[in-house]
Design a protein around this nucleic acid. Structure first.
Lengths: 191, 191
DNA sequence: CTCCAATGTGGACGTTGTCCAGATTCTTGT
DNA sequence: ACAAGAATCTGGACAACGTCCACATTGGAG
């Protein structure tokens, strides 16, 4: 009734604004997205957004939550489709990198401390990150019982794998590594 | 005589501006550094910087070059101080992460596509990155002849190690990994 | 010593984030 | 059904910013 119906005053802003901003995120870095431009695209005055987001940062932060949710979903889907522990770890990593390559600005936003990460751990972001850590953690828990991986510290291994995959995503979106390098580089460590 | 003396018109701006901006970078993210504030700190009018940098982005880009040089120097120093190939690889990685942890904003700037990376490969940045890749490449070239590493693809291994170390630096500065995790996580992969 | 180019200053314009006051519309209690 | 009242939008205002312009100053080359 009150939420997300389709006929308030103007329509359903909040979502319309997020959609407009998400469009801009396809081509523009978060830092260069202006609240007024988003409002323009949504067809409202430059002040309407303030009734749905306390702040420009709050809008971007909401976008970050969407991005993190998509990133997590991509990993879960990939893991589900793979068979065997090692293959699942690889699939998770490639999904992570794949999401970053497909949506570089959104990926960057998710890990931008000015809006999302340590600086503003929104109540909705934290559980998503926790779920992501659990997903990786459970996989690594299984991995350390596979031949060739026995006896490794699961915590350290999780941290290392997350780092590798995150760094790869970053370096590829920055153009420092070619996208095709992901698979072979991952295989160089996880095999 | 014309360069970097100590008494032009006002003193030696260019450097003074970079210093002032570098100070701000200790506490403020690059995106929030204003050209006017930098000028104020240097004691000049809001327009003086335009005689030394074509752009706000150009100033930040110059800072990025300084940051990259420092990052590279830290790695070279650490490698020099270590003995044995595996130990050198570890030392390089810890130096990389250490620099990021000590200067998070500067590190972020170096890899910020809005100012430095793919978007604006300044003529001075590129050779530094090339030197960093050579440093890692030569180490990996030696590594693949060590027991336990024989026969691995050096290219893929270089990419993987850079990714791991870069991701670790990123995740630590974001607060997603505790700084102490660097050593054990690195050991989980490189040992 | 003179002149020019490099350097610095102040003013101006358009854009942005944010606050405020007022108008409009939806909902809710009766 | 109807009168509040809350939620939602609008326009105007302000300070800060990046950038462009015209003008002032100064240091060095001839």
């Amino acid at each position: 009734m009150s939420r997300s119906a389709a006929g308030y005053h103007h329509g359903n802003l909040q979502a319309a604004l997020e959609d407009a901003a998400l469009d801009l995120l396809e081509t523009t870095s978060a830092a260069k997205i202006s609240l007024r431009e988003v409002a323009r695209r949504a067809g409202v005055s430059h002040n309407a957004p303030y009734h749905h987001f306390g702040d420009r940062a709050a809008l971007l932060s909401a976008l970050g939550v969407r991005g993190m949710a998509a990133l997590l979903a991509a990993q879960e889907e990939a893991v589900r489709a793979a068979e065997g522990t090692v293959a699942q770890v690889r699939a998770l990593g490639l999904a992570y990198v794949g999401y970053a390559a497909a949506h570089p600005q959104a990926f960057a936003l998710v890990f931008d401390p000015d809006y999302c990460a340590a600086g503003a751990p929104s109540a909705e972001m934290a559980p998503l990150i926790a779920r992501n850590e659990e997903l990786l953690g459970s996989l690594v828990g299984a991995l350390v019982q596979e031949p060739g991986w026995e006896g490794r510290d699961p915590m350290a291994l999780s941290a290392a794998l997350w780092s590798t995959v995150h760094g790869m995503a970053q370096l590829i979106t920055l153009g420092h590594l070619p996208p095709e390098a992901a698979e072979s580089a991952l295989d160089a460590l996880v095999r």
